[in-house]
Design a protein around this nucleic acid. Structure first.
Length: 872
RNA sequence: GGGCGGGUAGCUCAGUUGGGAGAGCAUCGGCCUUACAAGCCGAGGGUCACAGGUUCGAGCCCUGUUCCGCCUACCA
């Protein structure tokens, strides 16, 4: 084995092996239970970021663990066509050539996107491979694949025929830059400093004015009425009157509607049905014809009179100017408010009246609510369940049409001759009603999330009834970011119930968000991203994975910085070197140690190993990746390296009699540890395992270690912990007395301090001490004393010891004990404690009390001996 | 406006049915001990945000306050 482990070389080699052997492939197999995960498909435009790295490491660990545990694990990978985002990328590319998509035309543009996808789109898939993802690459899917497109059209037709899909005029969120409708959750609200403008509208045939307030004055050009509360007597006299809309000097209506809050402002609300969802509802109730004042690109239209052609924000200023000139602007107040922004390009979205396709979500949501309330789908951390349900209880219809070109074109066909509307997954050639071939397909495409909603079954072949679908569906667990809980998770559950009649997965694990060290979300525009590929290059994929796992508490946000990845690097370095030591001292790969020939050290390491297995399997159940990573880390570093390997050295170097059993134990432990760690650090564990067994195999095909209760020996573990405690104390005494670790120190112990010779040997060895056993401890003389684990430790102080320091040390120790005794006394004198606390706790406290008292008197004795006559 | 998460060592964070406050990094001291200086041995360091309450006992449970972050929402 190389003396240094250089990740990039090994990782590349192993990766090529895995890929060329198709190691991660899964086929339906009735003899085994499936364990399925579908990947949250990253955008084709995406490059791997830390969020992906975190998310996919979780999934990879789950997949590898289940596969090693004997399940038929299948991880379905793929990418999402990400309509708006991808179109934006290609449009930007065109813009550099001075062209727009309209210049090249729809067909040529889509070809361009496919071309782009072919060359840049699979970039992220390669990156996933680099972090070691055990995806079944043969099953890679793309949401625009033929099969998945068919799923989309089939689903659309199904919803339409069931009456759950309709086309209607509604206020939607319009992005003037992307020039498309967005769904409610695709608009992100940010608070911006805004103003509330109070404007006077003249009342026709009267000297009176009515004052209304607005945050978006430019939309007043689309006003059709002013509304008052029906019970508001201040405005009853206006019934039947008309109001003059300034600037365009149009007559508008007076209406009375309970929507108006009498307490707010003047109690008068201008009604702009084409630019505000509430106003739209009011307009409908009062038969008011909406007036659209804006074009799709955010400029004012012909209804804006002299403002026609101005951009909406320029128009806002202009409106205010005009109103001021005409003396109609009453006042302007500061009014910070939340404004919707396009989640793809951050442009301020416009509530805008438009004809779009909607899915009626209520009936779909009901089933999703049911399965989650019943606990058939479990969320981890559990708090997301509430968030999830809350959203579903208040669900609104989903606007699914988008005015872009890249995506699944809506499978609706309009006959140009007879107005027939046909909805069909198979593009019809002629009108089903009049037979005309003059039919035109809807221009719009579907929301990208419409296709991802079908992902858990469309990737497995739906709408065909495939073997895969039958075997792998429902999938097992889903790992994703909470940001897409509504976008994706909720919709998958709804469509799973609708099309498959069953839940798409039974457990959902929501990850935390990756942030920089100051707590900000990592984003390109902030420039605070840590590129996982850079980390892989510097530290290796294993270090990246391990570090992410060990520092991220379950579902909590994680704060990252470059240096943190040293945790992982240091760990693999330790593992590599320890393994190198074991392997180089091993004659052959043999884990069949003699169970009847174990000493206290063997028993200690085996007990700790088996207990670690227990911790790990519990951690898997609870998605505690931090716990499982940390417990393997501690086992390998603290128990195996610092105690077991150190402890067997005298046997290896021939300083102690050895029958070879210790190396077999070491082999067994290392073999187990590598398997246990493999899901977290797949590369190095496999590399080492191959060296250990001298056989080239994929570790993922090996069995995950199962706990062997026979190897657990609590009594020996306790005894060894006692050894460790004493060793630590002696080392401490040596360090404080400036005695080198390599120098031995004379230590006197009572005969019955330990169970047997073995224990004494290890104390002597680990502590670097020469033990003298006596029946009674010497009184007087220059000895320092410490008490650990209820054992008195006497150290010869004849040489080289600063008595002043020793005095301080003893004083400090005694002081600590005094405080402990005080605390303990108080507790034990408390009748309530003795009466109410569990007997075990009280007993323990009494024992401790006795121990403290004993220790204290022992130390005091020593103090008096060393410093006769001096006050404590 | 509503909801959620968090405030524990200098930093980043653990702390699972309430029973003597932990890890990693950083700091300090000592070590080239034949796997590893990316290491080994040892040490110091905390009014568990604040104020109440429940309890024999609270970092943990309840109430309130405060600060940070996130999600969500049509008050013109």
């Amino acid at each position: 084995m190389d003396t240094k482990y250089n990740p990039s070389g090994y990782e590349q080699k192993l990766l090529e092996k895995w890929l060329s052997n198709n190691t991660f492939h899964s086929e339906p197999d009735k003899k085994k239970d499936p364990f399925t995960i579908v990947i949250p498909p990253p955008n084709v435009t995406g490059v791997l970021h830390m969020g992906h790295a975190l998310n996919n490491t979780y999934q990879d660990i789950l997949i590898r663990y289940r596969r090693m545990s004997g399940l038929n694990a299948c991880w379905v990978p793929g990418t999402d066509h990400a309509g708006i985002a991808t179109q934006n990328v290609v449009e930007k590319k065109l813009a550099k050539e001075g062209k727009s998509r309209y210049d090249v035309g729809r067909e040529a543009f889509i070809e361009d996107v496919w071309e782009w996808k072919k060359h840049h789109g699979d970039y992220i898939i390669d990156q996933l491979k680099k972090i070691g993802c055990a995806c079944d690459w043969e099953r890679e899917r793309f949401t625009m694949d033929e099969g998945l497109s068919k799923a989309v059209f089939t689903a659309f037709q199904h919803y339409y025929e069931k009456g759950l899909l309709y086309r209607g005029h509604r206020i939607i969120n319009w992005c003037p830059r992307c020039q498309t409708a967005l769904s409610d959750i695709e608009t992100e609200h940010q608070e911006l400093p805004g103003k509330l403008y109070h404007v006077k509208y003249p009342i026709k045939d009267s000297d009176e004015f009515i004052t209304v307030a607005t945050t978006r004055p430019e939309t007043m050009l689309g006003d059709v009425a002013v509304a008052f509360h029906p019970d508001d007597e201040r405005y009853h006299h206006l019934k039947g009157k008309k109001i003059i809309l300034p600037i365009v000097n149009k007559e508008i209506e007076v209406v009375y509607d309970e929507y108006v809050d009498r307490e707010f402002g003047t109690g008068a609300v201008k009604i702009t049905p084409a630019h505000d969802p509430n106003d739209f509802e009011v307009g409908k109730r009062h038969d008011l014809e909406p007036v659209l004042a804006m074009n799709e690109d955010g400029t004012m239209n012909e209804n804006a009179g002299e403002l026609e052609g101005l951009d909406r924000f320029v128009a806002r200023k202009k409106v205010i100017e005009i109103l001021k000139e005409q003396g109609l602007l009453v006042k302007v107040e500061e009014n910070p408010h939340n404004v919707g922004h396009c989640y793809r390009c951050d442009t301020i979205v416009e509530p805008y009246l438009s004809k779009q396709w909607f899915v009626n979500m209520k009936p779909l949501a009901e089933k999703a609510i049911e399965v989650v309330e019943q606990g058939r789908i479990k969320f981890t951390p559990e708090r997301w369940k509430k968030v999830f349900l809350e959203w579903l209880y208040n669900i609104r219809d989903w606007c699914v049409s988008r005015q872009i070109w890249w995506g699944h074109r809506i499978p609706v066909y309009y006959c140009q001759d007879c107005d027939e509307i046909m909805v069909s997954a198979n593009s019809p050639e002629k009108c089903t009603k009049c037979g005309s071939t003059n039919i035109k397909q809807d221009e719009d495409v579907l929301d990208t999330w419409f296709s991802s909603a079908l992902w858990p079954f469309s990737t497995l072949g739906w709408p065909e009834k495939t073997k895969d679908l039958e075997y792998y569906y429902p999938t097992s667990q889903l790992v994703t970011a909470p940001e897409i809980l509504f976008f994706w998770v909720a919709r998958m559950i709804m469509s799973g119930m609708e099309f498959m009649g069953d839940i798409p997965f039974s457990e959902v694990f929501l990850t935390g968000t990756v942030r920089d060290e100051t707590g900000r979300k990592m984003s390109k525009s902030l420039g605070n991203v840590i590129d996982p590929l850079k980390i892989i290059k510097e530290y290796g994929a294993d270090a990246l994975r391990f570090t992410l796992m060990v520092i991220t508490a379950q579902g909590q946000d994680v704060f990252l910085s470059d240096e943190k990845f040293q945790i992982g690097r240091n760990f693999y370095n330790k593992l590599w070197n320890a393994s190198r030591f074991v392997i180089s001292n091993l004659e052959e790969y043999n884990t069949e140690f003699n169970k009847d020939n174990l000493d206290i050290l063997d028993s200690f390491i085996l007990t700790r190993l088996e207990k670690t297995k227990e911790t790990i399997s519990a951690a898997y159940k609870d998605f505690r990746f931090d716990v499982l990573s940390k417990s393997i880390y501690e086992f390998i570093w603290d128990d195996f390296c610092d105690w077991y390997i150190e402890g067997i050295k005298p046997y290896i170097y021939g300083k102690k009699e050895d029958d070879g059993n210790k190396m077999k134990v070491a082999c067994y432990v290392l073999d187990n540890a590598l398997r246990m760690l493999h899901p977290v650090m797949p590369f190095i564990t496999e590399e080492i395992h191959n060296h250990l067994t001298k056989v080239e195999k994929s570790l993922i095909d090996e069995k995950y270690p199962i706990k062997d209760d026979q190897l657990i020996d609590e009594e020996n573990l306790t005894e060894f912990k006692k050894i460790q405690g004493i060793v630590k104390e002696i080392r401490n005494l040596k360090a404080q007395s400036n005695i080198k670790k390599s120098e031995t120190i004379k230590v006197i112990l009572l005969n019955d301090s330990f169970k047997d010779e073995e224990s004494l040997h290890y104390v002597q060895y680990f502590a670097g001490a020469e033990l003298e056993l006596v029946d009674t401890l010497p009184e007087g003389g220059k000895y320092s004393k410490a008490v650990a684990e209820n054992v008195e430790i006497l150290v010869d102080l004849t040489e080289n010891v600063d008595l002043e320091e020793e005095k301080e040390r003893l004083k400090g120790e005694i002081d600590k004990l005094v405080k402990e005794i005080e605390r303990s006394t108080k507790m034990l004198n408390n009748k309530g404690f003795v009466a109410n606390a569990p007997e075990k706790v009280v007993e323990k406290e009494k024992e401790k009390f006795e121990m403290y008292k004993e220790s204290k008197s022992k130390l005091e004795e020593t103090y008096k001996n060393l410093f006769p006559g001096e006050e404590l």
